[in-house]
């Protein structure tokens, strides 16, 4: 789910670039200065997990995990996602340079929202963790798809068809992502629950 160069009107591309810079600056300030290198290392693992393909019928989908990043990193999530996208455009050119801001917004904002949702609603039991985690995971992807459609539609009514198609094609991903996130949260809850508390990374060692 990446917008490539040239799709968005230049005003939207520039505008979303500025907006994502502002959110990123906020995200950096919300992160403890000592934790920045740690966020960077963890980002590498998010990047790797976004390369994992999950079979779905005759094809396969690769995970986007904005929701999970939010669940694990809280307010640092936006920074991590921006970094990940930057790496991606350095290495693979999935999402282009000029659309970087837009891509960061459409993945990062849902990540922040999911992080908040998870920290407020996760409760104490494993069951609740898993349900909220699954919702956050699936919801993150759904929100990203909606934002993607909105951004595409900003090109004018000619783009509505593409926007609808993009939204529809992400529906199965949303289900897969929700389930995988629920399982991941369940695993972490049993194995290393402190990762789910969105504490400063420094407090986890």
């Amino acid at each position: 789910m990446h917008i490539s160069d040239g799709v968005l009107p230049i005003s939207v591309a520039l505008g979303s670039g500025v907006a994502s810079l502002a959110v990123a600056a906020w995200s950096v300030r919300q992160t403890d200065a000592d934790d920045l290198p740690k966020v960077a290392v963890v980002t590498a693992s998010f990047f790797v997990s976004s390369l994992i393909h999950v079979p779905l019928g005759p094809t396969s989908v690769h995970l986007l995990i904005p929701g999970l990043v939010g669940v694990l990193l809280g307010r640092s999530a936006f920074l991590a996602i921006l970094l990940g996208l930057l790496l991606q455009s350095l290495l693979f050119q999935f999402g282009g340079l000029t659309a970087l801001g837009a891509n960061a917004l459409l993945m990062g904002v849902p990540a922040l929202a999911c992080g908040l949702l998870f920290s407020k609603l996760r409760g104490t039991t494993q069951r609740q963790h898993v349900i909220v985690g699954g919702l956050a995971g699936g919801g993150g992807t759904l929100a990203s798809a909606v934002l993607l459609a909105l951004l595409l539609a900003s090109g004018g009514e000619d783009f509505f068809g593409v926007a609808k198609l993009a939204l529809l094609s992400h529906l199965p991903v949303f289900v897969v992502e929700g389930l995988v996130s629920a399982f991941t949260v369940s695993f972490l809850f049993r194995v290393k629950p402190e990762l789910l508390r969105q504490q400063r990374l420094g407090a986890l060692s």
Binding site: S45, S49, F187, L188
Partner: peptide
């Protein structure tokens, strides 16, 4: 299994 796999990946990276 993919959920566990991701979880393990995150644990190791943290």
């Amino acid at each position: 299994v993919m959920g566990n796999y991701l979880g393990m990946l995150f644990v190791r990276s943290f």
